[in-house]
């Protein structure tokens, strides 16, 4: 347990961007909101509070999305670096001189990339949104007068429930992609990013030129997009709000986990991920380029 704990810490010592980048992004949102909300409410106090509400709500959602995009980039580049950096700086022999199995090491890196890093980003996002709402409430109260915050606490819980659900489902669905990034990271002599992207692209082009089919391209695009069709069903929301009033986000209405877990695509993907990850462990165990 202590070993696992320190394997995770080790990753955060090395990859400080996993927590520093979300903190920087949060500070940017907070600083700009402090500067702008004050400005808007003082100079545009003729704007009705309802409109401001919508504006602030939009800003808050945008802030949340920015953390999602950031965590996607952080995870991709972390996983590409995770097994590459230790070979590049030749510290791998030091790590391997300690009684930690290659499975545990690769497992800790996968866990950091797929669970810990997104959790850090989402937690920072939540704190940022709460802070943004506090700032905007105060600002609006000083300008146009008292108003209702864009999201009730209940709505906020639901939104984050939905975020969490999306993160879990997408994380599981993307597992072969994450595994592929780790495999390339354990394999490439240099520039793992190109190794991750170019071979599939080359095979796609070959396939298209020789057989005039796009099986691999379809497979990959399905892996990237397919989960969204399965995991969410917005039809109920639209039906219940034909006049397009502010949709009441109800987690149970749009989340369809049963469709995801009944899909063979998920389980086949997890199986493929397992094989790919076993390959990454094998490479770390026996790859000898020191």
């Amino acid at each position: 347990m202590n070993t696992w704990n320190y394997l995770l810490r080790r990753e955060l010592w090395e990859h400080r961007s996993l927590y520093l980048a979300p903190i920087v992004l949060a500070s940017l949102w907070l600083v700009s909101s402090l500067l702008n909300f004050g400005h808007i409410t003082v100079h545009f106090d003729f704007i009705p509070p309802q409109l401001l509400e919508g504006l602030m709500g939009g800003v808050s959602v945008l802030a949340g999305l920015s953390f999602l995009v950031l965590s996607l980039f952080l995870v991709i580049f972390y996983l590409l670096d995770a097994l590459y950096a230790e070979r590049k700086d030749r510290s791998i022999l030091f790590w391997k001189s300690l009684p930690v199995s290659d499975t545990a090491t690769v497992g800790s890196k996968l866990f950091v990339g797929v669970v810990l890093a997104p959790a850090i980003a989402l937690t920072t996002a939540l704190v940022t949104q709460l802070a943004l709402m506090l700032v905007s409430s105060v600002a609006v109260a000083l300008g146009s007068g008292p108003w209702d915050p864009p999201f009730s606490p209940k709505a906020l819980v639901e939104i984050y429930g939905l975020f969490l659900y999306a993160a879990v489902v997408i994380g599981l669905w993307y597992m072969p992609v994450f595994g592929w990034l780790l495999l390339v990271s354990a394999w490439g002599k240099r520039s793992p990013f190109l190794w991750a992207v170019l071979p599939p692209a080359a095979i796609m082009m070959l396939e298209y030129n020789i057989r005039h089919t796009s099986l691999l391209a379809d497979l990959i695009s399905d892996r990237f997009i397919g989960v969204f069709m399965l995991a969410f069903d917005f039809s109920g929301v639209v039906e219940r709000h034909p006049d397009f009033g502010a949709p009441v986000v109800n987690l149970s209405d749009i989340a369809t986990p049963e469709r995801v877990f009944a899909s063979p695509g998920l389980w086949v993907g997890l199986l493929v991920a397992l094989v790919i990850l076993a390959g990454a462990v094998w490479l770390r165990r026996f790859r000898d380029d020191t």
Binding site: W13, E14, R90, I92
Partner: peptide, 14 residues
């Protein structure tokens, strides 16, 4: 235990 070469400790490690 082994020491394989001098420069194997990672530079970022305290």
């Amino acid at each position: 235990c082994f020491i394989a070469d001098v420069a194997v400790l990672p530079r970022w490690l305290k």
